Amino acid sequence: MHATSTYPLPPEETNLLAIQALRERYGVPVGYSGHEVGLQVSVAAVALGAVTVERHITLDRAMWGSDQSASVEPGGLMRLVRDIRITEQALGDGKKRVMPGEASKRDSLRRVTA
């Protein structure tokens, strides 16, 4: 797991590109342990190859504790899972081709000059 031990973790200290570096160096799947406020960085970690995401969960971010502000409430957890699943679908397989939704527009969008 790529992690940084700052609570809450500011985006500029996250260094998400370390996910790829760790994967290449050790030849193993790499996950991300998030301590940031919000969900965007965790979703970006998936887009950069994280195979697992770990986040602290709380019932109320205003509760006392050192990591409450970097934790996710139940509604946030549901949004995080939703956004990760959408991101996984959007990543595709990396092969460039005409997608089903483009096929009907292909001829009208094609530009050929003589």
Score class of each variant (00 low, 15 high):
V37H: 06
R25A: 10
M78Q: 11
E12Q: 11
S5A: 13
G65D: 02
V37P: 11
G34W: 03
R61I: 09
A21M: 10
G92T: 00
L77G: 07
L59Y: 07
V98S: 12
Y7P: 04
M99V: 10
M63L: 14
R85M: 09
P74D: 04
R82F: 11
P74A: 05
V43T: 02
V41L: 15
L48P: 00
V81S: 11
G34I: 02
G34H: 05
E102A: 13
P74T: 02
R82T: 09
L39G: 00
R61P: 09
T58D: 03
R82L: 14
A90M: 13
E73K: 02
D60W: 04
V72G: 04
L59G: 12
P74V: 01
A18N: 15
L9S: 06
S66C: 13
G76K: 03
G34T: 00
N15C: 08
E102Q: 11
S5K: 12
R61F: 08
K105C: 14
L16S: 04
S104L: 15
G75P: 03
W64L: 12
L59S: 11
G31Q: 07
E24I: 07
K105E: 15
R55K: 06
A62G: 15
I57A: 13
E24G: 02
R97E: 06
A47F: 01
G65H: 03
M78E: 14
G92W: 01
S71I: 01
G27S: 02
T14D: 10
N15P: 08
M1N: 15
R25I: 09
S69N: 06
V46L: 00
A103I: 14
R79C: 11
P74S: 00
A70L: 06
G92S: 01
E102Y: 07
E12L: 10
L39Y: 03
E12D: 08
A21V: 12
K105M: 13
L17T: 14
L22W: 05
L16F: 00
P11H: 13
I84W: 02
V112D: 14
A62T: 14
T52Q: 13
T6Y: 10
T113Y: 13
K105H: 13
A103Q: 10
R111C: 05
N15G: 08
L80D: 01
A47E: 11
V30P: 01
P11T: 07
R55Y: 00
I57Q: 14
H2D: 06
I86E: 13
S71R: 02
L22S: 04
D67Q: 02
V37I: 12
R110W: 07
A62P: 09
A70N: 08
L109E: 15
L17M: 08
G49P: 01
G76A: 05
L59Q: 13
G49Y: 05
R85N: 10
V43L: 07
D107V: 11
Q89N: 13
A45M: 05
P74N: 04
